[in-house]
């Protein structure tokens, strides 16, 4: 598998993502947000961080980066697109995923390891998880998933909710921590699987996420 990790000005989880992908043998490369082609890549990762300083709204400026046209084309072509944290925010602003990430219910930055339920173990991103409860790091000030009731109902009915917080750390609608699009090839999640792939740092619950993508 060949993967692109998009680097926006203000990305800060790009190298973690690159490292995690390379640990699993993926031929991964950093691609600038100014690039205009993603030809030849099987999977595209939008990493965490504070693209463009989170000015206006998280992800609102990054969605207009030149690379986003190629990301949209790749999504339409069925390539795997993964947005983690700020990447999730960019995907919603770009309209590639429904809803929006808003300021945490209790204002403030949350940095913690939290229990998460893998709701859908059939997805292209979770099919290697044997257990439903995992622990993943979260690090965000604006991670409260919001969508109107009709959209939430649609997400639930189509099994597009992939991850849920066991304790609602940020006030997300239906405790949603990660969703996919209707086709199932675009994933957005606030928790950081790329920070949980090495035993030496105390958590390997992100490993099955990468194994699922490679499966």
């Amino acid at each position: 598998m060949k993967a692109a990790v998009i680097q926006f000005p203000g990305s800060n989880c790009d190298l973690d993502m690159l490292n995690a992908l390379q640990l699993f043998g993926v031929e991964a490369q950093i691609v600038s947000h100014k690039a205009t082609s993603l030809a030849g890549y099987d999977a595209i990762f939008l990493p965490g961080g504070f693209s463009f300083g989170d000015y206006l709204r998280c992800g609102a400026i990054a969605r207009f980066s030149p690379i986003m046209t190629a990301v949209t084309t790749a999504a339409a072509a069925g390539k795997l697109i993964v947005g983690v944290c700020n990447g999730f925010q960019i995907l919603t602003e770009a309209g590639l995923l429904p809803g929006q990430l808003m300021m945490n219910e209790t204002p403030g930055f949350i940095c913690a390891e939290v229990p998460i339920t893998v709701i859908n173990q059939q997805s292209q991103f979770t099919n290697q998880y044997q257990q439903a409860t995992i622990t993943l790091p979260v690090a965000h000030g604006e991670g409260r998933y919001y969508a109107d009731e009709a959209t939430i109902a649609q997400l639930e009915a189509n099994h597009q909710v992939i991850f849920r917080y066991q304790t609602n750390v940020n006030g997300s609608a239906e405790q949603i921590a990660g969703i996919v699009n209707e086709k199932g090839n675009v994933l957005g999640m606030m928790p950081h699987p790329e920070r949980a792939v090495e035993a030496i740092i105390g958590n390997i619950d992100g490993q099955d996420f990468f194994r699922s993508i490679l499966n």
Binding site: L56, R57, A60, F64, T92, E93, G99, Q100, M102, Y146, A147, D148
Partner: peptide, 8 residues
């Protein structure tokens, strides 16, 4: 197109 997010 930019200033608002019509979701919210």
């Amino acid at each position: 197109e930019l200033l608002i997010n019509p979701n919210t």
